[in-house]
Simulated scan of single mutants.
Amino acid sequence: MTNANARTTITTVTLNAAIDKTYYMPAFVKGKVSRAAKVVSTAGGKGLNVARVLKQLGHAEVAATGFAGGYNGQFIVNGVKEAGIRSEFVAIPGESRLCMNFIDEGDGSSTEVLEPGPVIGEDQLERFKRELQRLSAESALVVFSGSLPGGTAPALYAELIALSRAAGADVFLDTSGESLVRGVTALPSFIKPNEDEIVSLLPDSHDGDLREGIRKLMAQGIPIVAATLGAEGAVAGAGGRIYRVRIPKIEPVNTVGSGDSFVAGYAYGHVRGWPIEECLRYAAAAGSANALSETTGDVDPREHARLLREIAVEEWL
């Protein structure tokens, strides 16, 4: 087996990949015919956003896997390759989904419509597991992101995390709902729940204190717990300590994908062995830079470098 210390590849897993379509509209009025002023389409899904941002930040070896079907699936695979990411998607029958984001340029509001995606059969899932085992054996880190596709069990992420770890890879998990609740039982190295999800992970906790919730999750064996808070930055726990991350005020263009960009930034520092504070600064700058782009999961390295100088990370005692 490859020496884990010599591995440099980061593999992202997007089981329910999509074409992300962002519609910029002068006004979005329910029940009326609306015309888009501009449409931006990208190969999407949370894991692919992570992969693309990792490449933009300068990480050389990035692989992406998951399921891809039909014409939409071919668009996704082509988009991955054009971004310089190694495509390791498993082909399936059916059509990969569309995820649509309607941005009202009048008030800046965003309305998302997410298709469910294709149902995955047992044979296709077994093929994917073999592919994941191979990729994990050559990866420093495997990042699992997004929703589970139809036909799979809520405990699937927990199973896949165990598979990747057995092959010698470190593991991050960024999902929600029951798949998050089940996934954390496999003790990934990093999770990024929001405030409400921390409550769902700790149903016996009634104090509503974000810091206390993060401490309890770390005590359960999860080394890094980060909660992004939009314009308020982030709160994270690592090494038994709690950190407050403050970001500069910006005028966001499209915030979809900012959480994924945060994960990419953290992963970039994590595989390089950076201190926690530096990983968090890099992550927060990536999340903020994404919000300045019209494209989902897109970070301009120049904006990232500028924002890095304005991010404050301090221990929250």
Rank of each mutant, 00 (worst) to 15 (best):
M1K: 15
N3V: 12
N16E: 05
K21L: 07
Y24G: 06
F28S: 13
G31P: 07
V33N: 15
S34G: 10
R35H: 13
R35S: 09
V39A: 00
V39G: 05
S41I: 04
G44S: 01
K46H: 02
G47D: 03
R52D: 00
V53T: 10
L54P: 02
K55S: 04
E61Y: 01
A64P: 00
F67T: 06
A68N: 04
F75W: 01
F75Q: 08
V77A: 03
G84A: 03
G84R: 05
G84D: 09
S87Q: 01
P93W: 06
E95C: 01
E95G: 14
N101L: 11
I103Q: 08
D104T: 06
E105C: 02
S109E: 14
T111F: 05
T111L: 06
T111H: 12
E112P: 01
E115D: 14
I120H: 04
I120S: 01
D123S: 12
L125A: 05
E131T: 13
E138K: 08
S139N: 09
V142T: 09
S147M: 06
A153C: 08
L160G: 09
A162L: 15
R165P: 14
V171C: 11
D174N: 04
T175F: 05
T175R: 03
E178Q: 15
G183I: 11
K192T: 08
K192R: 07
K192N: 00
P193A: 07
E197F: 09
S200F: 12
S200W: 10
L202H: 06
L210G: 00
R211K: 15
G213H: 12
I214P: 13
I214L: 04
K216P: 03
Q220E: 10
G221H: 07
P223Y: 13
I224L: 10
V225Y: 07
A227V: 15
E232S: 14
E232R: 15
A234R: 03
A234S: 10
A236T: 11
G237M: 09
G240H: 01
I242Y: 10
R244K: 14
I247R: 08
K249V: 13
K249L: 12
N254I: 07
T255H: 06
D260A: 00
S261L: 06
G265K: 12
Y268S: 00
R272V: 00
G273A: 09
W274Y: 02
W274N: 00
P275D: 12
E277T: 11
E278L: 11
Y282M: 10
A284M: 07
A284R: 10
A285M: 09
G287Y: 02
A291S: 13
D298F: 14
V299Q: 01
V299S: 08
V299N: 02
V299D: 06
P301I: 11
P301C: 11
R302P: 00
R309W: 04
R309C: 03
V313P: 09
E314Q: 13
